[in-house]
Simulated scan of single mutants.
Amino acid sequence: MARVSTPDLFIFQFLILFMIGIFKKWSALKMFFLLLLITFIRPDYVTFGLSYLGALGLFILIKQKKIEYHLIAQGIALIILNFAIMKYYNYPGWKDLFYDSFIQRRSFVSTDPMLFTWKGYFSIIYIKIIYFKKITLTVSLLLFAIFFLSKDLWVRILSCLFFCNVYIKFLFFPESGALRFFFVFVVLLLIMLLSVLAKKYNGFKLNKIA
Rank of each mutant, 00 (worst) to 15 (best):
G120K: 05
I103H: 06
N82G: 03
Y69R: 07
L149R: 02
F173W: 13
F122G: 05
F33T: 09
R106C: 08
A210V: 12
S107T: 14
L194F: 13
H70E: 15
I79F: 05
Q104N: 10
L9T: 13
G57C: 01
L81A: 01
G21R: 12
M31A: 13
F59V: 11
A178N: 14
P7M: 01
K133E: 14
T136F: 11
F32W: 05
L35M: 12
T117Y: 02
K205C: 14
S150T: 06
E68Q: 14
I79L: 14
S150G: 07
R3L: 08
F14G: 04
I79H: 00
R106P: 10
Q104L: 10
A77W: 08
L194P: 12
Y99W: 09
K200P: 06
L197T: 09
I20T: 15
S107N: 15
Y167G: 06
K95S: 14
L188Y: 03
S101R: 13
K66W: 03
P92T: 05
L137D: 12
I62W: 10
D44H: 07
M1H: 12
K205W: 09
N202M: 07
D112E: 07
K208L: 11
T6H: 01
I191C: 10
L29A: 12
P92C: 03
I62R: 11
A77D: 04
G120L: 05
V187S: 04
L34V: 03
S107I: 14
T39K: 02
K63N: 12
L50G: 03
I127V: 14
F48R: 01
F122Q: 04
I20G: 09
L197A: 04
L194Y: 09
F122V: 11
L158P: 00
V166R: 00
F173T: 13
F32C: 01
L71R: 04
F102D: 02
I41N: 02
K95R: 08
F148I: 14
F122N: 13
I72Y: 01
L153W: 05
F183K: 08
F40G: 06
A2C: 12
F83T: 13
L36Y: 07
M1P: 08
G54W: 03
T6S: 12
F98P: 00
Y167C: 04
L35E: 00
A178P: 05
I135N: 02
S51C: 07
L188C: 15
K133W: 15
L17C: 12
K169F: 02
L179S: 11
E68V: 08
I16M: 07
P7G: 05
F33M: 14
F102W: 05
A28F: 10
L78H: 03
L50N: 03
P113I: 02
L15I: 09
N82L: 10
I38G: 01
W118P: 03
I129S: 04
Q104A: 10
E175Y: 13
W118D: 02
Y126G: 15
L78T: 02
F18H: 10
K24G: 07
I41A: 09
D112W: 01
G75P: 03
L143K: 01
W26V: 07
K66I: 05
Y126L: 07
I157V: 15
G203R: 08
L141W: 11
I130P: 08
